[in-house]
Amino acid sequence: MRILVTGATGKVGGAVVRAALAAGHEVRVLVRGHPGSGALPVAGLDVVVGDVTDPATLPAAVEGVEVVFNAMGVPEQWLADPGRFDQVNVAGSARLARAAAAAGVRRLVHTSTIDVFDAPPGGRFDETSLASRPKGTPYERSKQRAEQAVFAAAGELEVVVVNPATVYGLGPYGPASMELRMFRPALRGLLPVVPPGGFGLVFTEGLGRGQLAAAGLGRPGARYILSDIHLSLRALTAAVVSVGGRGRAPAVTLPAALAELLATGGEAAARLTRRPPPLARGQLHYLRWNAVPDASRARAELGWEPTPLEDGLRHTLAALPRS
Rank of each mutant, 00 (worst) to 15 (best):
H230C: 02
A186K: 09
A213L: 14
P277E: 10
G64V: 07
V47F: 03
L272A: 15
G210M: 12
G104K: 14
P75F: 02
G33K: 15
R248A: 13
G206S: 15
Q211T: 01
A80L: 09
V167M: 09
P278F: 12
T113V: 01
L217W: 11
A215R: 05
Y168L: 01
L272Y: 08
R271E: 15
V252D: 00
T166A: 13
G200C: 02
A39G: 01
G83I: 11
L233Q: 09
R223Y: 00
G266C: 06
F183N: 04
P41G: 09
E260A: 15
D228S: 06
R281F: 10
A249C: 08
R209V: 06
E305W: 00
L21N: 07
E260M: 07
P121L: 07
R84T: 14
E301R: 12
A80S: 14
D54E: 14
T6I: 11
V241T: 09
L187D: 12
P192V: 04
F117V: 05
H25L: 14
L284D: 03
H230K: 10
H34C: 00
V68H: 09
V252L: 14
M1V: 09
A257D: 15
V49S: 10
G44Y: 00
L261S: 13
D115K: 00
Q77V: 02
A291L: 06
E140N: 10
A280P: 10
D81V: 05
P308L: 08
E260V: 01
G169E: 02
T204F: 03
G210H: 09
L130C: 00
G221H: 03
T166F: 09
V240R: 09
V31C: 13
E260I: 01
L180P: 02
N70M: 05
G13I: 03
E158L: 00
F117S: 04
T264K: 14
N163S: 15
E310G: 10
P306D: 01
W78L: 09
K135G: 12
F199Y: 05
W78T: 06
F151D: 07
V241K: 04
